[in-house]
Amino acid sequence: MVLENQDNRNLWEKIGDYFSANSIWMKWYCTGCGAIELPPTMTSRFDMERLGMGPMATPRQADVMLITGYLSTKTLRRVIYSYEQMQDPKYIVAFGSCTINGGVYYDSYATINQLDKYIPVDLYIAGCMPRPEAVMNAFADLISMIKKGQANGWRHYQENYEWYKKNQLDSLEEVIIHDEFHE
C-alpha cells in the first residue's frame, strides 16, 4: 500500500473529501469475531454516530467496509463481490491480526493470510480482537486520513487491477460464485 504524501487535489475534491470524512456509512462484513465489538461501538457506550458514522444495509449505499476478522477463501469471493459493488470513493478497514498475517489461522488451508493482496486495505486495526476503544481510535484516524486525501485504496485498486486480479485468481482459482443467488 503506497501512501501518497503530496496533496494534489483540487478545491472541489477537497470539499468532497470534507463531506466524505464527516459522513461515513459502513457495511460490516461480519464473518469474523470482530463483529461482536461493533454493537458496543455503535450503541450508547461509545456511540460512533458522534463521528457521523452509521450502519447501512447494502454495499451500494456504504462508504466503508469493515472486514472483521479472518476470511475463508469462500467468503473472500463474497467480499470481492461486495467491494466491487460499492461506489467510489470507498474504503476498507480490516480488523485484527487475522487480516494482517493470518493470526491464529496462519497455517489453515481454508483461510487467506494477508488481506491486502486481494483488496486494498486503507487501515488495519491490530489486536486479537481490537476493543471498541481501538475501533473508535481507528475511525478517528480514518476520518483524518480521508480529510488529508490519503485514503486512496480505491484508486490504487483501479490502477493496479491486474495485480489484484492475479492474486485473487492465484488463491481462489476463480472469483465467480456458483450458488443460487449469483447465477
Partner: peptide, 12 residues
Amino acid sequence: RYGPRWYQQFLD
C-alpha cells in the same frame, strides 16, 4: 447516546 451533529443530515 450523545448523537450526531445537528447538521449531520446535510453532510450525509
